[in-house]
Measured scan of single mutants.
Amino acid sequence: EQIEAIAKFDYMGRSPRELSFKKGASLLLYHRASEDWWEGRHNGVDGLIPHQYIVVQD
């Protein structure tokens, strides 16, 4: 089940696996990879999304 999230802040990925996005961006989350990271998608690209930078939608 995919979960929708909105970016709270701009984020610049620090490795090829991390996604970069702007504040207000819509993100799709697949699952929680760790306490700090989600596996997800932004603009058709899959990668890691930092939990602290997003708001998960109910």
Results as ranks from 00 to 15, higher is better:
34 S>A: 10
2 Q>W: 12
44 G>C: 09
42 H>W: 07
1 E>S: 08
11 Y>M: 03
18 E>K: 03
41 R>P: 00
15 S>Y: 13
39 E>A: 09
52 Q>F: 12
37 W>M: 15
11 Y>Q: 03
58 D>L: 11
56 V>N: 09
49 I>L: 07
34 S>P: 02
2 Q>I: 06
3 I>L: 07
55 V>M: 04
52 Q>W: 07
24 G>D: 15
56 V>P: 13
36 D>S: 12
7 A>Y: 01
35 E>G: 12
22 K>G: 10
48 L>S: 12
53 Y>D: 09
24 G>I: 00
51 H>L: 08
25 A>R: 05
8 K>F: 08
16 P>K: 06
40 G>H: 01
7 A>K: 00
23 K>L: 08
47 G>M: 00
43 N>M: 09
17 R>T: 08
55 V>D: 06
23 K>A: 06
45 V>D: 08
56 V>L: 09
32 R>L: 09
37 W>D: 03
12 M>W: 14
51 H>K: 11
49 I>A: 04
35 E>I: 09
36 D>V: 11
11 Y>T: 02
19 L>K: 00
51 H>P: 05
24 G>K: 07
37 W>T: 09
15 S>E: 14
32 R>G: 02
41 R>H: 09
19 L>R: 02
23 K>R: 09
15 S>M: 10
19 L>T: 02
31 H>T: 14
44 G>K: 06
5 A>S: 09
10 D>P: 06
58 D>N: 12
4 E>R: 10
44 G>A: 12
15 S>T: 12
4 E>S: 15
29 L>T: 01
51 H>A: 13
58 D>H: 10
3 I>R: 08
5 A>R: 02
49 I>K: 00
3 I>P: 04
5 A>I: 02
53 Y>K: 14
23 K>P: 02
54 I>Y: 03
46 D>Y: 05
5 A>T: 12
16 P>I: 06
53 Y>F: 15
30 Y>Q: 13
27 L>H: 00
39 E>F: 06
55 V>Q: 06
9 F>D: 15
58 D>P: 05
19 L>P: 02
31 H>C: 06
8 K>C: 06
46 D>N: 11
42 H>I: 05
52 Q>C: 07
27 L>T: 02
2 Q>E: 14
6 I>F: 12
28 L>D: 11
10 D>R: 05
